[in-house]
């Protein structure tokens, strides 16, 4: 579903991502953890086609993001760490805008908007301008927008920040549903307990380098993910 091969990206002299390779298969929830500035966001932005990279290759469903970004973007959805949405639109106008871009049929968009907005208890607020939304409401809207075209692959940067416990729980359910339908999720998080309970696989990145990856059991062994993470951080120091 998502194959990252030898990804390298530098900002001036600083190498943000260094020869990183990952493979996310259909049905997998893949967690991406690392300290602040480790290179998680750069990797995600490169995978989505927002950011050019210096070396390596990224494939979405077998298509190179570098060679055919439009075809790749049709297959995926992305939620950044701080979803700055179009404040000048209402919630419903924003969702229709996204649906128009992806060419979602009237029937499908109506059903999905109704379903997801009801689940997130956002229906009553859809006619409000986004500028009036709280951070959590914007995050919920971004999630609904991401799910609107039924993407095969969803990439998220710290998706649980700002969500209330109920919405967080719902998002976890929705992530699992995507994978059960054959899709895949690749997301970054600092909440290790969430990663531990939710992810099928996990990758740990430090200073741009992948230091460990695999199934949850392979990565943590007999310890908790937190212990492994802290140990790896200390080792490298």
């Amino acid at each position: 579903m998502l194959r990252i091969e030898h990804l390298t990206k530098a900002y001036g002299d600083k190498v943000a991502v260094d020869d990183l390779s990952l493979h996310i298969r259909p049905g997998e929830i893949y967690g991406f953890i690392g300290h602040n500035g480790a290179g998680k966001t750069t990797t995600l932005r490169s995978a989505v086609g927002i950011q050019r990279f210096d070396a390596g290759e990224i494939y979405i469903c077998g298509t190179s993001i570098r060679e055919d970004p439009i075809a790749c973007k049709r297959q995926l959805a992305y939620i950044p760490d701080n979803p700055d949405l179009y404040d000048f639109m209402t919630g419903i106008k924003y969702l229709n805008f996204i649906a128009d871009i992806f060419g979602v049929s009237a029937q499908d968009r109506q059903t999905r908007i109704r379903t997801y907005a009801d689940r997130f208890e956002l229906t009553a607020d859809l006619a409000q301008p986004i500028s009036a939304y709280s951070h959590g409401m914007k995050q919920k809207l971004a999630v609904i927008a991401a799910w609107l075209h039924d993407p095969k692959l969803i990439l998220m940067d710290e998706p649980f920040v700002g969500l209330d416990p109920k919405a967080s729980h719902l998002l976890k359910e929705m992530m699992r549903e995507v994978c059960d339908r054959g899709g895949a999720i690749f997301f970054s998080t600092h909440v290790l307990e969430v990663a531990e309970k939710l992810c099928d696989k996990v990758a740990i990145i430090k200073q741009g380098k992948l230091i460990r990856s695999g199934t949850m059991d392979e990565v943590r062994g007999d310890d908790s993910l937190e212990e492994v993470f802290l140990e790896l951080e200390a080792e490298e120091c």
Partner: peptide, 26 residues
């Protein structure tokens, strides 16, 4: 006053029209 959302059939637009609408709204 809070505007209450009432579901109605969406008017489908091409991606180009949607982008133009976004710019005009901005």
């Amino acid at each position: 006053k809070k505007t209450v959302y009432r579901e109605k059939a969406a008017k489908l637009q091409s991606p180009d029209r949607a982008l133009l609408g976004k710019e005009l709204r901005r």
